[in-house]
Design a protein around this nucleic acid. Structure first.
Lengths: 153, 153
DNA sequence: TGGAAACCCTGTAGCCGCTACAGAGTCAAA
DNA sequence: TTTGACTCTGTAGCGGCTACAGGGTTTCCA
């Protein structure tokens, strides 16, 4: 199986496969005399594993750690549990942050909308008004307590 | 006011201010004879505007568009509405995707956890088991219908 | 047999929004 | 005078790809 077929079967771009090889997520495969990569079923399984973890939004570094752990089948799997739980905690936190954000944006967009578009000029746009108020350090519809925290991630 | 004071007042890194200037989000300020940037209140307001939009997770390109719109105060503000609504739609979609993800990770982590850590070896780790099953194309606890979609963003 | 199309190779640069570093110059206080 | 805090420019790095340039190889069809 050459790289194109492997990529098609796993549903990824050819470039992505080469990228994973560079990043040591896939083993370097054998080559034909012309230098073409040749893959077997093992490679496809490993690639599917990686893609599955990626579909769960895990960073590649953690996928690498899982692969590492999976290869030492006789050691305790505390690392595996830790990786998955830490990732779950991150996802929870991010989802919660996005919920807040969504509420803020809805508050903002509710400020604007009664007037039909052609009559509605920038000078009276409530959205911009809110954002400019906020720039003066005043409380705004989206951040009523006047705090602007950094959003990371 | 020099760059350090401006940055402190806006709660950002000095490097970020210079970055925003390069990216045309802030006007290039006057300079002292030694080449130091000198800022006024207008710059602080504009920087606060940018940071407020960033706290709402807007991409800089959209912040730039908002700033552009805000400077033509006499035109209709359809662009402003469109930007904010499109951004809101993106945030909603992302939040929904994270909710699904969170459920998937919880399903995964529930597979593992009854056995005390030292006895729990990689070979019997249910989390890894699930992930490896998935790599074989079988349905797994996290993606029961067997589909793995690409997550973007 | 020839030529086009589809595939493959390497290497490099771009995306985003910063952050960090190197190596230099400037300024104020002790 | 010397320390230390500040500033300057330019460049590179993060993650996870994606895209492109500029070449070589294979396959298919006429």
């Amino acid at each position: 199986m050459r790289i194109g077929e492997l990529a098609r079967k796993a549903g990824v771009d050819v470039q992505t496969v080469r990228y994973y090889e560079r990043e040591k997520l896939l083993e370097a495969p054998a080559r034909t005399p012309a230098g073409y990569r040749v893959y077997g079923e093992k490679h496809l399984e490993r690639l599917n594993f990686v893609r599955h973890c990626r579909s769960l939004d895990m960073p590649l570094a953690e996928v690498r750690a899982l692969l590492e752990a999976a290869s030492n089948r006789n050691v305790p799997c505390g690392d595996v549990d830790r990786i998955v739980h830490a990732h779950l905690a991150r996802v929870k936190a991010k989802r919660a942050a996005l919920e807040v954000l969504e509420a803020q944006l809805e508050a903002l967009s509710r400020q604007c909308g009664s007037q039909p578009a052609p009559e509605h000029r920038v000078a009276d746009c409530a959205i911009l008004g809110e954002l400019i108020h906020a720039a003066h350090g005043e409380a705004c519809a989206c951040h009523p307590d006047g705090e602007i925290e950094k959003s990371r991630g």
